[in-house]
Amino acid sequence: MLLRIIPFEIRKLFEQPMIHLFFIASLLLNTIYIVTAGLDQSYLKYIQETEVTTGYLITSEFREKLSAQSASKEQQRLLTETAGAGNVFQHYSTEALGQEMIDFFQIQGSFAEKLKRKYEKLTPVVHELAEEQASLEVGAAGETMNFFTFIRNRLFRVVLGESLIFALLLGLYGSTSERLTKTDVLVMSSKTGRKTQVSKYVASFILTFLFYVTMVMLTFGIFNYLHPIGILWQTSMSTQFHVNVYFPQLLEIPFIPWQSMTLLNYTILSIVLGGLLIILCHGFNFLVGLWTDHLFRGFIVFVVIYVVLLGMEQIANQLGWWNMHSLLMWHPISLWQIQGYWFTEMGPYATIPWQESIAMIINIFLLGIGGILTSKFYSAKEVK
């Protein structure tokens, strides 16, 4: 019976005008963002045409062949940007990197020891990158950082942010729609009626996930049409032209993921992990809607939790409470905030390898437990 209800619940949700308006507005915003990206497509095209004869690794042979090319502004720029390039990871010390991170953020106590152990585990990864000569890949040379940062840190972040807002609203609306239409007393007063919330959850989840998948496909499709980057998708994320940047002051270090990745691999993994975050956001807010029994009250609860967690994180950072800071980094909201560091060593935002992925799986498990507890509460809840 519940399976038969799901298509009707999906149709009810899909008939809401705000869903169409939000989708159109998001896609329009993303298109404008892509059009105004300011990426130097002509320089990338020149490099990719040049790589046919020079190769994609910056070696002495690369420089010789590049020097033999006909003189142009692009040639001189590429010669300048690749001059003195070497294998960054050949003699790179992860222990020194860990100490640099500890000094930069002024970390003390047991948290500093955890970071040291984490960076010791990074050593085999650096050795692998050195053997692959990942840092010598030319990519888009001086434009690599602009392209990579725009794709992973800006464009994907915008898509993920829109999808999280959609998941938040649809999760709350899905569990409170009967209250909004004042049919809750009729539907939810029976045991069978209350079970329809399972159908509502599935329906709103399907629509949320479809929004995310469609938005990813259309947005990246538009990007690839307006900015065809070709073989740049196959460039290593650890090329020396692409670095990881930590704030509030400026600390630039090599981009070191826990496994050698190309831009395409990294983007796909980010999309997958973003999908898990969508599941968390939708599921959590659906449960909040059931507990509060009101869309607006549920939204206020979410905002309060969001603000409290952000406030706790700021206090922990200001007072140097690094152990509390470490615990807060396992929360979905913190995982969303540090999206730009996913799959890397993550500086002070992680104490173990692949922490963001492990944290996401743990949070989904906790969401499942929350769903079981909520179902027990909801089955005995009095309808007012």
Rank of each mutant, 00 (worst) to 15 (best):
L367G: 01
L366T: 06
I352R: 04
A96N: 08
F241I: 08
V35C: 01
L290Q: 11
L78R: 01
I34S: 04
Q76S: 12
F62N: 06
S26I: 09
E162S: 13
A134I: 10
T176Y: 08
K45H: 12
T82A: 03
Q249M: 12
M1N: 11
E252Q: 13
I305G: 09
L367H: 02
I5C: 08
L2P: 05
F223M: 02
K121T: 15
I222N: 03
L13P: 09
Q314E: 12
Q48S: 04
I361N: 03
G98M: 05
L168N: 05
Y341V: 09
G368R: 01
T31E: 02
E81Q: 06
I10W: 03
S260W: 11
V272W: 14
L66C: 03
F166G: 03
Q69W: 06
F62I: 00
V288C: 07
N87T: 06
Y46R: 03
I352T: 09
I271H: 08
A85T: 13
F156L: 15
F241L: 04
T94R: 02
L44P: 02
V383T: 15
S379M: 11
C281G: 00
Y246S: 06
L226K: 13
S175P: 05
Y201W: 14
L28T: 15
K12T: 07
V187Q: 09
H91E: 15
Y225Q: 08
F223P: 00
F365V: 02
E143V: 02
I271T: 12
G174Q: 01
K381M: 13
Q16N: 15
R63G: 01
Q337L: 15
L218C: 03
Y119R: 04
S189I: 10
L218W: 09
F220D: 04
F296R: 05
V88T: 06
Y212C: 03
